[in-house]
Amino acid sequence: MKIVVESVINSLNEYIPYILGGMSVIILLLFILVIVLFKSVNKLENKYRRLMRGTSGKNLEELLISQLENIEKANSNSQEALDRCADMRERIKECVQKIAIMRYKAFEDVGSDLSFSVAILDENNDGVMLTGIYGRQESTTYAKPIDKGISRYDLSEEEIYVLNEATNKSSK
Results as ranks from 00 to 15, higher is better:
Val5Lys: 05
Lys39Pro: 00
Tyr104Asp: 01
Leu82Phe: 09
Ile101Gly: 00
Phe116Leu: 12
Gly21Asp: 13
Ile120Pro: 01
Lys93Leu: 13
Lys172Thr: 11
Glu45Gly: 00
Val36Arg: 09
Leu37Asp: 10
Ala86Pro: 01
Asp147Met: 02
Leu28Asp: 10
Ser56Asp: 08
Leu121Ser: 08
Cys95Pro: 00
Ile146Ala: 01
Tyr104Leu: 03
Leu63Lys: 09
Lys148Ala: 05
Gln97His: 01
Val34Ser: 14
Ser7Met: 13
Asn124Ala: 13
Ile120His: 01
Phe31Asp: 07
Gly21Tyr: 09
Glu61Phe: 12
Arg103His: 14
Ile65Met: 04
Tyr161Gly: 00
Met129Arg: 05
Ile133Met: 05
Ile3Asn: 11
Gln137Phe: 14
Arg136Asp: 11
Phe31Asn: 10
Ile133Gly: 04
Arg49Ala: 15
Arg152Gln: 09
Asn77Cys: 09
Glu90Lys: 15
Gly132Val: 10
Ile71Val: 13
Glu72Gln: 14
Glu157Gln: 07
Ser139Asp: 06
Gly21His: 08
Asp87Ala: 15
Val110Ala: 00
Gly149Lys: 02
Thr55Lys: 03
Glu158Gln: 10
Ala100Trp: 03
Ile35His: 04
Leu114Val: 03
Lys93Asp: 12
Gly54Leu: 07
Ser11Asp: 09
Asp113Thr: 06
Arg89Thr: 09
Glu165Ile: 05
Leu82Ile: 13
Ser78Val: 07
Asn168Thr: 09
Glu123Thr: 10
Leu82Lys: 14
Leu64Asp: 04
Phe38Arg: 08
Arg50Ala: 11
Ala166Trp: 04
Val25Pro: 00
Lys105Glu: 01
Ser117Ile: 00
Tyr153Thr: 01
Val4Glu: 15
Leu20Cys: 03
Asn59Val: 12
Cys95Asp: 03
Asp126Cys: 00
Ile16Asn: 01
Arg53Ala: 15
Leu82Cys: 04
Leu114Ala: 13
Asp109Trp: 03
Ile99Gly: 01
Ile71Ala: 05
Leu29Ser: 15
Gly135Trp: 11
Ser56Thr: 01
Gly21Phe: 07
Gly57Leu: 04
Asn10Lys: 15
Tyr142Ser: 12
Gly149Ile: 02
Lys172Leu: 14
Arg91Glu: 08
Arg50Glu: 11
Gln67Ala: 08
Ser151Thr: 05
Val162Pro: 03
Ala143Leu: 06
Ala143Ile: 07
Leu155Tyr: 02
Ser11Lys: 11
Leu114Arg: 10
Ser156Ala: 09
Val34Asn: 13
Asp109Glu: 07
Ile19Asp: 03
Tyr153Ile: 00
Val36Glu: 07
Lys93Met: 11
Ala166Leu: 04
Arg50Asn: 13
Val5Ile: 07
Gln79Ser: 12
Tyr161Lys: 07
Ile27Asn: 12
Lys169Asn: 02
Leu60Trp: 06
Met1Arg: 11
Gly111Arg: 09
Lys2Gly: 14
Ser115Ala: 04
Ile3Leu: 12
Asp83His: 13
Asp147Val: 07
Gly132Ala: 12
Tyr104His: 05
Lys144Gln: 01
Val25Asp: 10
Asn125Gln: 05
Ser7Val: 07
Glu108Phe: 02
Val162Gln: 02
Gly21Ser: 15
Asp122Val: 05
Asn70Ala: 11
Ala74Lys: 08
Gly132Pro: 06
Met1Asn: 05
Thr167Glu: 02
Asp83Tyr: 13
Arg89Asn: 15
Leu20Ile: 06
Asp87Ser: 14
Glu157Ile: 02
Tyr142Pro: 07
Ser24Lys: 15
